[in-house]
Amino acid sequence: MICENLKEVEAKIEAACKRAGRDRSEVTLIAVSKTKPVEMLEEAYGIGIREFGENKVQEMMDKYEVMPKDIHWHMIGHLQRNKVKYLMGKAALIHSVDSLRLAEEISAQSVKHEVTTDILIEVNIAGEETKFGTDREEAIALVEAAAKLPNIHICGLMTIAPFVENSEDNRKYFQQIRQLSVDIKEKNIDNVDMRILSMGMTGDYEVAIEEGATMVRVGTGIFGARNYNI
Rank of each mutant, 00 (worst) to 15 (best):
C3I: 12
C3G: 11
L6Y: 15
K12F: 05
I13Q: 01
G21R: 04
R22A: 12
D23I: 06
R24S: 15
S25A: 13
E26C: 09
T28D: 14
L29Y: 04
T35L: 07
T35Y: 06
K36S: 02
K36I: 03
V38A: 11
E43D: 15
G48C: 13
E51T: 08
E51H: 15
V57G: 08
V57W: 03
V57F: 09
Q58M: 12
D62E: 15
K63G: 11
E65A: 10
E65V: 09
E65I: 08
I71Y: 14
W73D: 05
H74A: 10
H74E: 09
I76L: 15
G77M: 05
H78V: 08
H78F: 04
N82M: 08
K83T: 03
L87K: 04
L87D: 09
L87Y: 06
M88W: 07
M88H: 09
K90F: 11
A92Q: 13
I94G: 01
H95A: 00
S96V: 00
L100R: 06
E104H: 04
E105T: 04
S107N: 02
S107W: 00
Q109P: 02
S110N: 06
V111P: 01
K112H: 12
K112F: 10
H113F: 14
E114L: 08
E114D: 15
I119Q: 02
V123N: 03
G127K: 07
G127D: 09
R136K: 15
R136M: 13
E144A: 14
P150D: 14
I152M: 02
I154Y: 03
I154Q: 04
C155Y: 00
G156T: 06
M158W: 01
M158S: 02
M158P: 01
A161G: 08
P162T: 06
D169V: 03
N170G: 05
K172N: 02
Q175C: 07
Q176M: 13
I177W: 04
Q179V: 06
L180N: 04
S181K: 04
V182S: 09
K185R: 11
K187H: 08
N188G: 03
I189V: 11
D190I: 09
M194K: 02
R195I: 08
I196Y: 03
S198Y: 06
T202L: 09
D204N: 05
V207K: 02
A208F: 04
I209K: 00
E211A: 01
R217I: 07
I222F: 05
I222L: 14
F223Y: 15
N227G: 03
N227P: 04
N227K: 11
N227F: 11
N229C: 03
I230L: 14
